[in-house]
């Protein structure tokens, strides 16, 4: 065990002891916060996956990804505006519109993200490394700009469609659970499992892994690199879109600039888990959600930002490639 490993375990140990103390002293609050943190973290995980997949395959920090997430919530709420849905009763109409809105928005956002890659990143594939980073920043402004043009800086309401109210919440051991919490967590678990199956079993998934590992070799083996990269952007966006709608259904309010902060945190989560590593992103998202929730509750929300990023730096110092990242040997 090296010094840095040691530091890493000390760090983890301290965190666990602190949290365990709280869990014993006030289990109700602890589990309440845990519940919220997991739900929040599930959304971050969905966004983090897109960051990590894109980074894994073309080593680009896709700054526009957070805004793609927001855009899907905005589009989702617009589509729901076409239907006469009720926020108070959950009937067949609401159920069907929900079933409809997910795939429609996911496909649309997937298409938009593939187009962004085509237009703004692909032409720069052999350009200096930072050129696509700048177009990604530009794309982030463009997507935010479109939403700003559409709604201005006003709060955008996302219909509160999920069943809520007295019939859909319960106390278990003094902890307050809502149907919404469960929905978010279950949806995220399903999506991440689907992704895992896809990446590991499908031909395209294998092509993606091969391309991420060594693009030139993959090309020599007959893999269509452009198609694989497009697929990566598509899937990343589909997950972000799902995340965006889930966010809307869960929190019900957003604005054009939301993707900036969510994106930053989700990207941090991806790094946390080991960028390029898919289970890592899911784990990272979850942990960041928990850290945020615990910090908001036990330390105070104005310290959360500092705590999240301090932990990020500490983790990287002690574990330079993130929690699940591989230690690539030097050639």
């Amino acid at each position: 065990m090296t010094f840095t490993d040691y530091g890493f375990y000390v760090l983890c140990g301290t965190a666990i002891v602190l949290l365990a103390t709280q869990a014993v002293l006030d289990p109700r609050t602890f589990f309440q916060v845990l519940d919220f943190g997991i739900a929040d973290g599930a959304i971050y995980a969905l966004v983090a996956l897109g960051y990590t997949m894109v980074y894994g395959i073309i080593e680009l920090i896709n700054f526009a990804h957070g805004d793609i997430f927001t855009l899907s919530a905005v589009i989702g709420s617009a589509i729901l505006g076409f239907f006469t849905v009720s926020e108070n009763t959950f009937s067949l109409t609401e159920f069907v519109t929900l079933l409809l809105v997910f795939p429609v928005v996911m496909l649309m956002i997937g298409g938009i993200n593939v187009t962004i890659e085509r237009v703004a990143y692909r032409p720069l594939r052999n350009a200096p490394r930072l050129a696509p980073l700048i177009t990604a920043i530009g794309m982030s402004f463009i997507v935010e700009g479109v939403m700003y043009l559409w709604h201005g800086s006003a709060i955008i309401h996302f219909p509160d469609l999920l069943p809520h109210g007295p019939g859909f919440q319960t106390y278990i051991g003094g902890v307050f659970f809502t149907f919404k919490d469960i929905f978010v967590i279950v949806a995220a678990v399903i999506l991440v499992s689907l992704l895992a199956v896809f990446i590991n079993a499908s031909k395209l998934g294998k092509a993606m892994r091969a391309t991420a590992q060594d693009r030139d070799a993959a090309q020599l083996m007959g893999i269509d690199i452009n198609r694989t990269i497009s697929a990566t952007f598509f899937i990343g966006a589909v997950l972000a879109a799902a995340g965006g709608i889930i966010y809307g259904l869960y929190f019900n309010n957003l604005d054009y600039h939301l993707g900036f902060s969510v994106g930053l945190i989700a990207f941090t989560a991806a790094v946390f888990g080991g960028i390029g590593n898919i289970p890592g992103a899911a784990l990272g998202g979850l942990l960041i959600g928990l850290v945020k929730a615990f910090s908001d509750n036990y330390v105070g929300s104005r310290w959360t930002h500092i705590i999240v990023f301090s932990i990020l730096i500490a983790v990287l110092v002690f574990r330079p490639t993130g929690l699940l990242g591989m230690r690539v040997p030097e050639k």
Binding site: P128, A131, G138, E144, G145, L149
Partner: peptide, 22 residues
């Protein structure tokens, strides 16, 4: 006024596409 953010993004992207080296 509303379009300036969008415009700045467009300027960034197009400048980078035209001169990737700066």
């Amino acid at each position: 006024q509303n379009v300036t953010l969008l415009l700045f993004g467009l300027i960034l992207v197009s400048m980078m596409l035209v001169r990737p080296q700066g």
